[in-house]
Amino acid sequence: MPINAALRDYLKTRRSVGIGFLKDPGPTPEELQEILTIGTRVPDHGKFVPWRLILIEGDDRLRAGEKLAAIAKRKRPDLDEAGMEIERRQFLPAPLTIGVLLSPKPNPKSPEIEQLLSAGNVCFNLSHAAFALGFAASWTNRWYGFDVDAQTMLGARGGERFVGFVHIGTPTAVIEDRDRPNLDDVVSRWRS
Rank of each mutant, 00 (worst) to 15 (best):
R41H: 10
V187P: 00
L22I: 12
A6F: 09
G65W: 07
R180N: 02
R76N: 14
D80S: 09
V148Y: 10
W190Q: 10
L154K: 06
S138E: 06
R157I: 06
G164R: 02
A132H: 05
A156Q: 07
G155H: 03
R74C: 02
I98K: 01
A137H: 02
L96D: 05
L32S: 05
W51D: 10
K12R: 15
L92W: 03
A129L: 05
Y144G: 03
I168T: 09
D177T: 12
V122N: 04
S127D: 12
Q90D: 01
D44W: 03
K47E: 14
D60N: 12
E114Q: 12
E87I: 03
S192G: 13
R61M: 11
L96Y: 07
G83W: 09
P93L: 12
K23W: 05
G20L: 09
F21Y: 10
N182I: 09
F48I: 03
D149P: 04
I3V: 15
P43S: 05
A82E: 14
F21P: 02
E112Q: 10
T13N: 14
M84K: 13
G159D: 10
H128T: 09
V122H: 04
D9P: 12
D179P: 09
G46T: 00
A82I: 06
A137S: 15
R8N: 11
L102K: 01
P29F: 10
E31C: 08
R180V: 10
I168M: 05
K23L: 00
P43C: 07
L96H: 06
I86A: 08
V163S: 04
M153T: 11
A156I: 06
W139P: 00
E160V: 05
V174C: 00
V186Y: 09
P93V: 11
S118Q: 01
P104R: 01
S188A: 14
S118H: 04
F124G: 05
A156V: 14
W143A: 08
D44M: 03
D185C: 08
A94F: 04
L79C: 09
L116I: 02
I71S: 06
I175K: 13
T40Q: 15
F162Q: 12
D147H: 08
A173M: 13
L126C: 07
Y144L: 07
R8K: 09
L79P: 00
V148K: 15
A132P: 00
G158H: 11
L11W: 03
S16P: 00
W51N: 10
I98C: 11
S103T: 07
S188I: 01
S110A: 15
P171H: 10
A82F: 09
L101M: 14
W51H: 11
L32C: 07
R61C: 08
S110G: 00
L116T: 02
A72H: 08
R89A: 13
F48G: 04
K12H: 11
V100R: 01
K75N: 13
F135H: 03
S188H: 12
A119L: 07
S127E: 11
P106F: 07
A137V: 05
V122Y: 03
R15V: 08
F48K: 15
D179C: 01
G145F: 04
K105I: 10
L68E: 05
A129H: 00
R8I: 15
D184S: 11
I38K: 11
D184A: 14
L32Q: 12
R157N: 14
F146K: 05
I38H: 06
V49E: 12
I38R: 14
F146W: 10
R88V: 05
D60Y: 14
